[in-house]
Write a protein that binds this DNA or RNA. Sequence first.
DNA 1: ACCCAGGGTAACT
DNA 2: AGTTACCATGGG
Length: 265
Amino acid sequence: MGDYRIKKPDVFSLPLCLDCGQAFRWEKRENAFCGVAFGKFLKIEETDSELIFYGTEKEDFDKIWKPYFDLDVNYSEIIGAYDEENLVKAVTEYRGIRILRQEPWEALCSFIISQNNNIPRIKGIISRLCENFGDAVDGGFTFPDAERLADLTPDDLAPLRAGFRAKYIIDAAQKVAEQTVNFKKIDENPIEFGREELIKVKGVGAKVAECTLLYGFHKLSAFPIDVWVKRIIAEMYPNGLPACIKGTEGIAQQYLFHYRRNLDK
DNA sequence: ACCCAGGGTAACT
DNA sequence: AGTTACCATGGG
């Protein structure tokens, strides 16, 4: 198989996209990142001017990786319109973050696991979930689909050491598999529908729902409020969010999250 | 030993 | 309607 190369977009950084807390399954190996999404393993590397998709044919690039890295969206235009002081700092310092289009089920499941948890341990639990219940592919494991997990019990998930979240994962798997939570409708409808639909799952509240809508359904107006964003709002925007993020709140959120989280390091 | 982590639930006022 | 203890686990 050949490699697929494209000119690097104006706003693109692999470490920022893949290690900013929106995806938990990419691993840095030397200058490249390796991971599995949509059932396919990818090794990807960036140079100053190019993106190199190793072992990738045009078909998989068009079908999987182009949408995954959101390459049809003009981020330069979007973040260029942010005219508020703190946002300008965030998008200048961390220029390169993009919102990945992840699989909806993986996003839902991952952010259920994320609750009251830290990123290294989230990654560990998800990794064990895939190793134990996903399918082996060349280079790693797929993310187990909802149908695969729907018949399990929380005890079956003991090897994950997910704690109290195990029962939430099972409930989500069951409701997604039987379409009590209907992904197709969430995809087709405005964000408000998805908000109501997703919180039917036990263990899914407003924040996990927003993350799922943003990273799994690419609803760019989703605005997840976690402990860091709470701090941002309290410290920077006590009187409301700036108007310039209207319609792309989720992109602004990701820049602000990363900006604020790195202040304390 | 104590605190916190990309929260949510249930049981309280 | 708005607080608060509790939830499993692991790292600092």
